[in-house]
Design a protein around this nucleic acid. Structure first.
Lengths: 209, 209
DNA sequence: AATAGAAACGGACCCTGGTCCGTTTGGGAC
DNA sequence: GTCCCAAACGGACCAGGGTCCGTTTCTATT
């Protein structure tokens, strides 16, 4: 038996928390209550006035807690934004792991890879400002990126691509990053054109085994 | 005759300002003087205490001018950082346009492309924190990126690559961006490995004409 | 040389992210 | 039910980016 855990297992371990309870073992009641209070408040602010209006003071006030609490729960504004993203991200990851084709399993790998790229692009576009705000000063990080790369690496393996798969996967993901996509959208490039170019790129990478 | 300007002409127009004088036609003497005062001060601070120490107040104080002046000259901290980068960037662009091989002309296109990637990677690593600070909230922008893409697009053309060259060029550049590279370095990936993976990517893109 | 007005100046001021620390509270042990 | 303390709380406080506006300084023009 292999000493390497299966890809499915890796992906599962990397999944974002769908269930709000999945946190530190003994989180005190007040802490848990305030977490959902804050998350709700932040969501409300985003919906009502946009990401820019989500100031740490505003969230604290809207949730009716002290500012210090917001920072203890989420560490920083970027952390809060990441938490906001986490909810939909977890659902999306679920669809990738076990949802219907072509994003989910039961699809030829290339088709699945292309569906993955299209879906990521759409997610990036849909919550560009949240993602930009979630990226701390030291670039993006965290489990979400790890999930994406592992998945792409897996697909590349299935396609028989050889080489430094982890880095190749990142290179494939890079053009779908908020910074790049936002810049292109800002320059008037359409979603369709971005997608077509990315598809082209992916096919070239796959073609050269 | 073509209505499209030559690539050389395009690159020239995109070049960063090497000469300090190349600015608005009638810049007042005091304004010009303060610009170099501020740039010098900022450089000194970077060298002495690192990018993090380059606070707008600190720069103003070190230059002996008011804080408002810093903002009028450079617009924002990101703008100041961009200006700091501009100096070395201009010299580098000069080497790309008319320097010695393999970066400069007189080299087979593929070799030149690979040299370009290696050189960009090294520049990204060398001034990662400056570049991170120069990237405003809305991702990177400005003439530097335009220069890179035009150059890569040009090389791809010479290589006979077909497709959406501008976007393909950006996709090739994306993995060399500060955010991505910093993340990889932070994860313990070596410069050599990043370069190897990028070279692989570039060759795959070129291989599929 | 005098003048006018455009441009630049400077620093007080505001806003927001992030820290600190004295106070309160939840919940396990007895 | 009481006690205890680790954990959580909250808001005063600080630092740094960015704005504003009354004052000063250039420079073109006469």
């Amino acid at each position: 038996m292999s000493t390497e855990p299966s890809v499915e297992r890796q992906l599962f371990d990397l999944r974002a928390h769908t269930e709000p309870e999945r946190h530190e073992p003994h989180e005190r009641r007040d802490a848990a209550r305030n977490r959902v209070l804050l998350l709700d408040a932040a969501h409300r602010l985003v919906d009502r006035d946009g990401v820019a209006a989500v100031t740490m003071d505003a969230v604290a006030a809207e949730a009716g807690v002290g500012k210090g609490t917001v920072f203890r729960r989420f560490g920083s504004r970027a952390g809060l934004m990441t938490a906001l993203l986490d909810h939909t991200e977890a659902r999306w990851q679920g669809r990738v792991i076990s949802g219907p084709p072509p994003l989910g399993p039961g699809t030829p790998p290339l088709e699945r890879l292309l569906a993955f790229g299209a879906s990521r692009l759409d997610r990036t576009i849909a919550s560009a400002d949240l993602m930009a705000a979630a990226a701390g000063r030291h670039g993006r990080s965290g489990p979400a990126v790890a999930f994406w790369t592992v998945h792409v690496r897996h697909l590349l393996t299935e396609l028989g691509v050889t080489g430094d798969l982890p880095l190749l996967a990142m290179a494939l993901l890079a053009p779908l990053d908020v910074t790049i996509v936002s810049q292109q959208l800002g320059a008037g490039v359409s979603r369709e054109r971005i997608l077509a170019a990315w598809t082209d790129l992916a096919e070239r990478v796959v073609a050269g085994r």
